[in-house]
Deep mutational scan, measured.
Amino acid sequence: KMTIRVKGKELARRIAKEMKDRNLKVEIHEHGDEVILEIE
C-alpha cells in the first residue's frame, strides 16, 4: 500500500487514471488544496 500527497486536483486525477490503467486500486481523499491518493 502506497500513499501519495499531491497539490492540485488536476494532477491527482491524472495520477489516479494512470494507476487505474495499471489495474491498481486507488482511493482519493481530498483535503482542500491537497489530495491524498492511497494506492493498493
Rank of each mutant, 00 (worst) to 15 (best):
M2N: 04
R13T: 08
E34I: 14
R13H: 12
R13P: 00
I15Y: 04
K25D: 04
H31T: 10
M2V: 13
I36F: 10
R13L: 15
R14H: 07
R5L: 09
R22S: 04
I39C: 11
K9R: 14
R5E: 02
K17P: 00
E27D: 08
V26P: 01
E30N: 06
R5W: 09
V6P: 00
H29C: 13
G8V: 07
H31L: 13
I28M: 12
I15F: 06
I36K: 03
A12C: 04
I36Q: 03
G32R: 05
M2H: 09
I28P: 01
E40V: 12
I4Y: 06
E10D: 11
D33F: 05
D21Y: 10
I15S: 00
R14D: 03
I4K: 02
R14S: 05
E34D: 11
A16D: 00
I39A: 03
R13A: 13
G8A: 06
A16R: 03
I28D: 00
E40N: 11
I39H: 01
I36R: 04
I36D: 03
M19S: 01
M2D: 03
V6R: 02
I28N: 01
I39P: 00
K1E: 02
D33T: 07
A16Q: 04
V6F: 08
L11Y: 07
E34F: 15
A16K: 03
K7W: 11
G8D: 15
I4D: 00
R14C: 14
L11E: 08
L11D: 04
D33S: 07
K7A: 07
D33H: 06
G32P: 05
K7R: 13
E40W: 15
D33W: 06
K20M: 14
N23G: 15
E30A: 08
E40T: 15
R14K: 11
M2S: 05
I4N: 01
R14M: 09
K17W: 05
E18S: 12
E40Q: 12
H29A: 06
G32K: 06
R22V: 03
H31R: 11
A16V: 11
D33V: 06
I28K: 02
G8P: 08
L37C: 01
T3H: 07
L11N: 05
K1G: 10
N23E: 05
K20Y: 09
E38K: 10
K20E: 11
E34A: 07
T3K: 10
K1M: 09
I28G: 03
K25L: 09
L24H: 06
D21G: 11
I15G: 00
E18I: 15
H31Q: 12
E27T: 15
E34K: 04
M2F: 13
I15M: 08
V6E: 00
D33E: 11
A12Y: 02
L24R: 05
K17H: 06
